[in-house]
Nucleic acid binder design. Structure first.
Length: 323
DNA sequence: AACACGGGGGT
DNA sequence: ACCCCAGTGTT
């Protein structure tokens, strides 16, 4: 869960997770839909699938035990060099350094590595850590370095005055702590989308995304990108015609949700409407009562629409994380 | 080595 | 609006 995700964001998910899945066998038994629902809102959903896949492998072939060797660990889906080193050092106190964002930043400053945090920097950092890592207390050392990065040697405005190793810091000595490591640049594509909350017989239509790619296997409302020259409504009619082969009737604006992804940001417009034409349910297309929508995993943007919809029905108030 | 892959929070 | 986060897998 902590891969690319802040501790604060993880904690509530982690608490629920260990309750739902107290061991690998429990995770192995659980349906993927339930696992994804428990992951809803955390992002990087492949992690949930990988965790479940790893549980399957270990229950089937390793007696439901987590291996204690680096090579066996990194062979498991979702476990890379960081997580393998974290398991070995934090759980078993074995002498493996953890190369993650906090450690990289702290070490880049200590060593005054002025270039980007690339493979070359990683090799220098690993080399330095191999002499710094205490052989008998690797877990505490690793956690201390990560905490130092998170609380003191922060990305912006590092608290050098409170830093226990400021006197060893080459970047600090030169006053370069604010420019090391260099900031990453950002592409920012912008997408406007229109989606339809199609109502029929007291239910609404939802679709399951493809099993691969962005937001794989999550549920959403049908619709799509507004092309240049289109209005929201004309895009909505075109998308629904293309995706479902039916005509939109009486669209009424429901909600606007802005949502940011790593590579682009989407401006999502949802419309309540009806549809003219046959719309059969299928494994990837479901009619669901609004009150039951919360039992499906949606991307965060769509989940906001779900809450608007349920709120407008006056059934119940939104919750942070529904079941 | 570059890119895909979320979402929330800080500044 | 931009940056970043206890990375991993694929290309």
């Amino acid at each position: 869960m902590l891969q690319q995700t802040t501790v604060e964001a993880v904690i509530p998910y982690y608490r629920r997770w260990v309750k739902s899945y107290p061991d690998l066998a429990a995770l192995d038994r659980a349906p993927l839909s339930r696992v994804l629902k428990d992951w809803q809102g955390l992002g990087y959903y492949e992690r949930a699938r990988n965790l479940k896949a790893a549980a399957r492998i270990l229950v089937a072939g390793n007696g439901g035990r987590v291996p204690d060797g680096f090579e066996e660990l990194v062979r498991l889906p979702g476990i890379g060099p960081y997580t393998a080193a974290a398991i070995l050092s934090l759980a078993l106190n074995r002498p493996y350094p953890v190369l993650e964002a906090n450690v990289r930043r702290v070490m880049a400053r200590l060593l005054r590595l002025r270039g980007p945090l690339d493979g070359r920097a990683d090799r220098k950092i690993a080399s330095a850590l191999s002499s710094l890592l205490p052989r008998r207390n690797a877990g505490q050392f690793n956690q201390a370095l990560m905490e130092l990065g998170a609380l003191v040697c922060r990305p912006a405005s590092p608290r050098c005055v409170s830093c226990p190793v400021a006197s060893y810091c080459s970047a600090r000595r030169r006053g370069e702590q604010d420019s090391i490591p260099p900031r990453k640049t950002k592409p920012a594509l912008r997408v406007t989308a229109a989606v339809a909350v199609i109502r029929r017989n007291g239910k609404v239509l939802i679709q399951k995304r493809p099993d691969k790619g962005l937001l794989a296997g999550l549920w959403e409302f049908p619709g799509g990108k507004v092309e240049p020259g289109e209005t929201l409504e004309s895009a909505l009619r075109r998308e629904i015609r293309e995706e479902l082969g039916v005509e939109v009737r009486d669209p009424v604006f429901l909600a606007r949700v802005k949502h940011a992804y790593t590579k682009y940001r989407v401006d999502l417009h949802a419309f309540l409407c009806r549809a003219a034409g046959a719309l059969r349910p299928s494994p990837r297309r479901l009619w669901v009562k609004p009150a039951a929508l919360r039992s499906y995993a949606f991307p965060a943007g769509s989940a906001k629409i779900v809450e608007k919809l349920i709120g407008s029905d006056g059934r119940s108030r939104p919750r942070a994380h529904g079941r």
